[in-house]
Design a protein around this nucleic acid. Structure first.
Lengths: 209, 209
DNA sequence: TAGATTGTTAATCGATTAACAATC
DNA sequence: TAGATTGTTAATCGATTAACAATC
């Protein structure tokens, strides 16, 4: 079997499958594509094709082995080897992400934040450290951090982005509503709440006619 | 011209265009599709086709009138008539969304939050009110709220969803990583951080081979 | 007129769905 | 064997890209 690049739409569904399979009642040791499709409101064939990419081998009449499927999904999504990341911008959103407990569930370990507001940079016991932005480059390089999360206002996002790139970051998760210019070697994943809300609005509007 | 339903991918790009056009330097009174495409890293034809949907009429050799384009985008995205919304779950994420100042920029007005944690439900001066979940139905109905935002843990999301539906909510913006079951009349828009991060990871991995 | 730009039609690509053979 | 389920091949749909005519 040739290692195919997995389609983007498939990648988006894999974490959803994993979440669902993990939440299954304990006694279930196997699960069928049809059951997953029903539970998640998807087409059966989509699920089977997606799971085929994961190379989880299903047994006719039984389905997929739960433990095996979980493992295969976690492996493919890279949930085993933790990605160390830093957040730039420790305002409300940045802080919420910094202290969110659920990220280790999907292989993301946010080790620190950076902010220029001195009021934020004192270390509180039990919480993760917040450093001044001036130390970003030094610390990222020293710790070998490869993922940066941007939660600063739009006006500062490009400058922060440039600093992250200079610090050797390879992937940027961008919550600021601007298009970031980066070298070809760096990947930007935009998370734009306005976009997401616009999709909801548009579907609501369409429904109302 | 027949009123076509706008494609989903187009809807996702419209807020990005709007954001970009708004941020243009003051002296610019017109903008070409080519310039937008270059700035946002998109194909020119995509931009022209998208803008055609918005029915902004561009002039050859000049481009689109900035003011007209802004207005048309805002109108189509429904940024003029505010959507009143409530948040259920006033933890870190819910609270960050509740107090986020940028939502009115895209027609979303979060008027209150609900949470069962009594420690959160005291009104602080200058901040938006947080009520106990028991009052959700009463208040939503009285205020005619049509959009609900779910930021509770996964285990409680379906129950909260059911209460929102019972209160007459038509659209749900769901930040909990579960598939919600709703009647056909209700629209759910999922915002799943695990999904977004998985896409980043997968693109990073691909890059590294 | 020449050149830049829009808007549209046709071709390509990727993702979804339908049909069906293979297997336990 | 019969039935349920997987996995794959072909058909359809939607979105992107390429080519080009229309217009100021």
């Amino acid at each position: 079997m040739i290692m195919q690049a997995i389609g983007k739409q498939t990648v988006k569904r894999l974490p959803v499958y994993l979440e669902y399979v993990k939440a299954l009642p304990d006694q279930k040791t196997s699960i069928s594509a049809a059951a997953i499709a029903r539970a998640l409101g998807l087409n059966e064939v989509v699920v089977r094709k997606d799971l085929a990419c994961v190379s989880a081998n299903g047994k006719p009449k039984i389905g997929y082995d739960r433990a095996e499927l979980t493992k295969a999904l976690e492996h493919l999504l890279g949930y085993n080897d933790l990605s160390h990341a830093v957040i730039v911008g420790a305002g409300r959103l940045g802080h919420a992400l910094l202290e969110y407990q659920g990220f280790d569930r999907f292989g993301l370990d946010i080790i620190a934040a950076f902010d220029n507001d001195d009021a934020l940079t004192d270390k509180k016991p039990g919480s993760k450290p917040i450093f001044p932005v001036s130390r970003l480059q030094e610390l990222c390089q020293r710790l070998g951090v490869k993922v940066g999360i941007i939660t600063v206002p739009a006006t500062q996002a490009q400058s922060v982005c440039d600093q992250l790139v200079a610090a050797g970051i390879l992937g940027i998760w961008n919550f600021a509503p601007v298009h970031l210019k980066v070298p070809e070697t760096v990947i930007v994943q935009d998370e734009n709440l306005a976009v997401s809300f616009a999709v909801l609005q548009s579907r609501l509007k369409q429904r109302l006619l």
